Amino acid sequence: MKLRDLPIPLDRRIPFVSAVVDVIEGRGDIATAIELLVAAELRCGVAIWTDLAGSESQMAAGSFVPVNSATPPTLRETMDLIRRWEDFERVFRSADADPRADALDAGVARLLGETHLVLSGMDFTNDTFVRAVDGTVAGWTQRAWGAFLARWANGVGWGPLSNERGKRHVWDYADFYHLNDQYIEHYTRWREVVMDVLHQKTLRAMGDAGGR
């Protein structure tokens, strides 16, 4: 990235960003950031979860819809299925242009707009997945997540940044492979706090009425 005006400042006008910055600067607690993220996820109809399966995870990139849409797997059941891919494929099928996959993508884009939860492909894709209220789940490769962020950033004018020729920078998937403090203000601490928010939010949801 050869850009002017780096690093990109964290936009404290966004409530979730402000709450994370408060944690970074020692003025706030993580519970506030969790509450703000959960509220935004409820408005957008999608939620980001830490994949608790860790090294046992077999979550693949792509979007997957429940075979039985009337009774989709709970969050806890989905977490369990991610460890056993043969069982996962009996309960979910590839979206294959299913409108539910498009709805999930739209929800994620809206969630990005509400939270500016920007993480590099390296940080986001290894340990997280997204689940919609209808049970649709999705994971990304680093390239696919970078392309998703680039489309969102170009669409909303995130930045704002110009290149060395003074023209508006057009984001590309490769811009989001690896992010650091040179590109985004306090990125190292931002990543650490946001990943902690996601992890603690997931643990809380899994312990709440069986992870519905």
Rank of each mutant, 00 (worst) to 15 (best):
G62Q: 04
V118S: 09
A132D: 08
W85Y: 08
I34Q: 15
T78E: 03
G107N: 10
R84G: 02
R131N: 06
F88E: 01
D80E: 08
A33V: 11
I82Y: 02
P72K: 13
A101P: 02
E86W: 04
L52G: 04
D123R: 11
L104W: 05
L119Y: 09
R100P: 04
A101N: 02
T78Q: 02
T128N: 12
R110A: 15
E35T: 10
A33L: 10
R43P: 04
L81I: 02
D134T: 15
A39C: 07
L75N: 06
R100V: 05
F129L: 12
Q58V: 03
D80C: 01
R84P: 00
L104V: 15
M122K: 10
T136F: 03
V38C: 07
A40D: 09
L81W: 02
A103V: 14
G135N: 12
T74S: 13
R131G: 05
T125W: 07
L36I: 05
A39Q: 09
A31Q: 13
L36A: 06
H116E: 14
T71H: 02
I82A: 00
V130Q: 08
L42P: 01
R131W: 07
E89W: 05
P66M: 13
T74R: 03
A95Q: 00
D105I: 08
R43K: 10
D102I: 08
N126K: 11
A101Q: 02
W49P: 01
E77C: 03
L36H: 06
D87P: 00
D127G: 11
E86R: 13
D96F: 01
S63I: 02
Q58I: 00
G107Y: 11
L75D: 06
A53D: 09
D134Q: 15
V118G: 12
V108I: 14
V65C: 09
D87T: 04
A61S: 15
L81N: 01
T71K: 03
L117C: 14
A53Y: 03
V130D: 03
L119P: 08
D123N: 09
A60L: 13
A53I: 04
A97R: 11
D96M: 02
A47Q: 12
D80P: 01
V67H: 07
D123P: 04
L42R: 14
L37C: 14
A40C: 11
T128C: 11
L117S: 13
L81C: 03
L104N: 06
V108G: 00
F88K: 00
P73M: 05
D127N: 10
T71S: 06
L37F: 15
A109S: 13
P72C: 13
G107E: 11
V67W: 05
E86H: 10
R90F: 05
Q58P: 00
I30S: 09
S57P: 06
I30A: 09
G121W: 02
P72H: 10
V118R: 06
A70I: 08
A106C: 11
G113W: 12
S94K: 05
N126Q: 12
T32L: 08
C44I: 01
L117M: 15
E35L: 13
D80L: 04
